[in-house]
């Protein structure tokens, strides 16, 4: 198929960006979206032009590196997938596709489609863990965990930290991301000990990083490649109120 691409190009963080049009022919429906961009970049190299910068790595939807807005949607059409798992069979011959970076104050653009998501690390850094040191730990089976709790914890722990939730949210809220970590740890007996402190610290850091508040649009859940549920946000709110009592 033949496609028209409108791609956001921005030389660096302080430069002004703009959309640039590219035409691409011979796109196979079996290609992944990133492979289509690889082909375009090879053509740019032939023309001695700078390639389009974008983060990507595992290309199987788990590392969380990739992600941009495709026709206004985080990770493009389809649900439960990261950009790297999107295949060109989702598009048709002659389509125009608009590609731009995730936009949020907390995610400054580095170059083209590449953004800086280190704010996520800084949020988790203040308490997104169980403070267990290496060694001196009892047997793994010494802490039985209810299967339901373990499963719910795992559902939340599946978050890949890609930032689609922030990009999809009209307020650039990071509540789904934060609540996923809070649920992952807070649902487990090992994690309950530091729960109150963790919730307060993470929420404070989230505000510090200039992410907005949740206004219950649920856009985050709709675009999350791991289909993390907004019930985690409800749990975060519950824990937060309790921690402040």
């Amino acid at each position: 198929m033949k496609l028209n691409l409108k791609v956001w190009r921005q030389q660096n963080n302080s430069a002004k960006g703009k959309f640039v049009n590219y035409k691409i022919d011979d796109v196979s429906e079996h290609m992944s979206f990133l492979e289509m961009l690889d082909v375009l970049n090879e053509e740019l190299i032939k023309k001695s032009e700078d390639t389009i910068a974008f983060d990507h790595d595992c290309r199987e939807g788990i590392c969380g590196s990739c992600g941009f807005m495709i026709n206004g949607r985080a990770h493009g059409p389809g649900s439960g997938i990261a950009t790297c798992q999107l295949h060109m069979r989702s598009f048709k011959d002659g389509d125009t596709i608009i590609i731009e970076p995730f936009r949020a104050e907390g995610f400054p653009v580095i170059k083209d489609l590449m953004i800086d998501r280190s704010a996520f690390d800084r949020i988790l850094q203040v308490g997104g863990y169980i403070s267990a040191k290496t060694g001196g730990i009892p047997d793994g089976n010494a802490i039985p965990i209810k299967k339901e709790d373990s499963d719910l914890s795992m559902d939340a722990a599946a978050c890949i930290g890609c930032g689609a939730c922030v990009a999809a949210c009209p307020n650039s809220s990071a509540m789904l991301f934060v609540s996923a970590k809070i649920s992952h740890l807070g649902l487990l007996p090992q994690g309950k000990i530091e729960n109150d402190e963790r919730v307060i610290k993470l929420v404070a850091q989230m505000d510090e990083e200039k992410f907005g508040s949740c206004s219950n649009t649920y856009a985050c859940e709709a675009e999350c490649p791991k289909e993390i549920s907004v019930t985690n946000i409800a749990r975060l709110n519950k824990y937060f109120i309790k921690a402040n009592l």
């Binding site: 863990y129 169980i130 267990a132 290496t134 060694g135 730990i137 009892p138 047997d139 793994g140 802490i143 039985p144 965990i145 299967k147 373990s150 499963d151 914890s153 795992m154 722990a157 992952h184 740890l185 487990l188 090992q190 994690g191």
Partner: peptide, 12 residues
């Protein structure tokens, strides 16, 4: 043991 203590949600 270490990973359980850290909160790795192994299958149960």
């Amino acid at each position: 043991d270490q990973c359980v203590a850290q909160g790795v949600p192994f299958a149960r």
